[in-house]
Computed example of a mutant assay.
Amino acid sequence: MELKGQTAIVTGGGRGIGRAICLSLADEGANIVVASRTEEEIQQTRQMVEDTGASCLAISTDIREEEGVKKLISKTMDVFGKIDILVNDAGVAYRKPLQDISTDEYDEIMDTNVKGMFLCTKYALPHILKSDSARIVNISSGAGKQGIPQLSVYCASKFAVIGITESLASELAGKVKVYAVCPGGVDTQMYRSLFSDEPMLKPEHIAQKVLELCLPDSKVPSGSSIEVYRPPF
Rank of each mutant, 00 (worst) to 15 (best):
L3T: 12
Q6Y: 05
A8N: 07
I9C: 04
G12P: 01
G13K: 06
G14H: 06
G16R: 09
I21A: 07
C22D: 00
L23P: 09
S24H: 03
A26V: 05
A26E: 05
E28R: 15
E28F: 10
E28M: 11
G29R: 02
A35F: 00
S36P: 01
E41P: 00
E41S: 14
Q44Y: 07
T45V: 06
R46C: 13
D51N: 14
T52Q: 00
S55K: 13
S60I: 04
D62M: 12
I63T: 13
I63N: 07
G68F: 06
K75L: 12
T76K: 04
M77N: 07
D78Q: 15
D78G: 01
K82E: 14
K82M: 13
V87W: 10
V87N: 10
A90C: 09
A93H: 05
R95Q: 12
K96C: 06
P97G: 08
Q99S: 10
I101W: 01
I101V: 15
E105V: 03
N113Y: 02
G116H: 07
L119M: 04
C120M: 05
K122N: 10
K122I: 04
L125V: 01
P126T: 12
S140Y: 09
S140P: 14
G142Q: 11
K145S: 05
I148T: 15
I148R: 10
P149F: 10
L151D: 11
Y154M: 13
K158R: 11
S167F: 02
A169L: 07
A173H: 13
K175A: 12
V176R: 06
V176T: 11
K177E: 12
V178L: 12
V181R: 03
G184V: 01
G185C: 02
V186T: 10
M190N: 05
M190Q: 13
Y191T: 00
E198W: 02
L201N: 09
K202L: 14
E204P: 13
I206E: 04
L215W: 01
G223L: 07
V228W: 12
R230I: 08
P231L: 08
P231V: 03
P232F: 08
F233Y: 11
